[in-house]
Simulated scan of single mutants.
Amino acid sequence: MASIAVITPYHQEPLEVLEQCHRSVLAQEPAADHFMVADGFPNPQVAGWKVRHVVLPQAHGYGGSVPRGVGAMLAEAQGYEFVAFLDADNWYHPGHLASLVELQRRTRAPVCSSLRTFHQPDGTPIETVEAAEDQLVHVDTSCLLIHRSAFSALPVWMHLPQQIFKLCDRVFVAALRHKRFAIASTRQRTVAYRTLYQTHYEAAGLPLPAGFKPTNILHPSYEWLNTREGVALTVERLGFWPAAYMA
């Protein structure tokens, strides 16, 4: 039986959003232990759930990278075979973990992934896909299952420069590629992803939601990554230059 730790960093999400996230983990087969890591704002109700509740004494922000890394490192120290991730505003569809574990057993790939369904903030489905994801160029963090043979990549979450925190999932996948860990995909849409990205709404012909993320939101991070400072600091902190592994 696989031992799986699902790592969810959370900050100030509404309780009903956290509940949906957690229920989706409880419904998985094989069963997984849910690590919910509070980034400076612990919810007292979460402490009463069937979770490994980890509380960081102060908020770090930066897309949840620090609490994600803390949870992953704890799971490694406790001897789990697999680490998966699930952002607090996302949820798993039934069969998500089972499909990933089956793929890993069959292919022996150190990293396995899925695709996503897209949803409005209230959970309403959006009929759209993302070309970069379907082509396996982009892999969202919540879609990943990491076997212990690839755990050497986990510390990357702790060392991300704050200037590229919006690229955190892309940088982590770049680290996997840098370390030459093969990434297999089920090509199944088993992660539900709440989106605020303008591109998803425009592709579906829907009005933009409040607080939407504009198309160019990632441009400053990419630009910094290509500066002399960006190259030097990422190589110093991560041991490689992420842009070399990004399409």
Rank of each mutant, 00 (worst) to 15 (best):
M1A: 13
M1F: 10
A5W: 01
P9M: 02
E13M: 08
L18C: 05
E19R: 15
R23P: 01
Q28D: 01
F35H: 13
A38H: 07
V46T: 06
R52G: 05
V54W: 05
L56C: 03
P57Y: 07
A59R: 15
G63E: 07
G69M: 03
V70L: 05
M73W: 02
L74C: 06
Q78W: 14
L86P: 04
W91L: 10
L97M: 11
A98E: 15
S99Y: 08
T107E: 12
S113N: 11
S114I: 04
F118K: 02
H119N: 12
Q120K: 13
G123R: 07
P125E: 11
E127P: 00
E130T: 00
E130K: 03
A131P: 00
E133C: 06
D134F: 10
Q135K: 14
D140K: 08
D140A: 15
L145Q: 10
H147L: 02
S149P: 00
F151D: 01
F151M: 06
L154W: 01
M158I: 02
H159F: 11
L160D: 08
Q163N: 08
R170W: 14
R170C: 12
V171T: 12
F172V: 09
H178C: 12
Q188L: 15
R189T: 11
T190R: 13
V191F: 05
H200Q: 12
Y201K: 11
E202L: 15
A204E: 00
G205Q: 06
L206D: 04
L208H: 06
P209I: 06
L218T: 13
W224N: 04
L225Y: 02
N226W: 03
R228C: 09
A232C: 09
L233V: 15
T234H: 06
T234N: 14
L238W: 01
P242S: 05
A244K: 15
A247K: 14
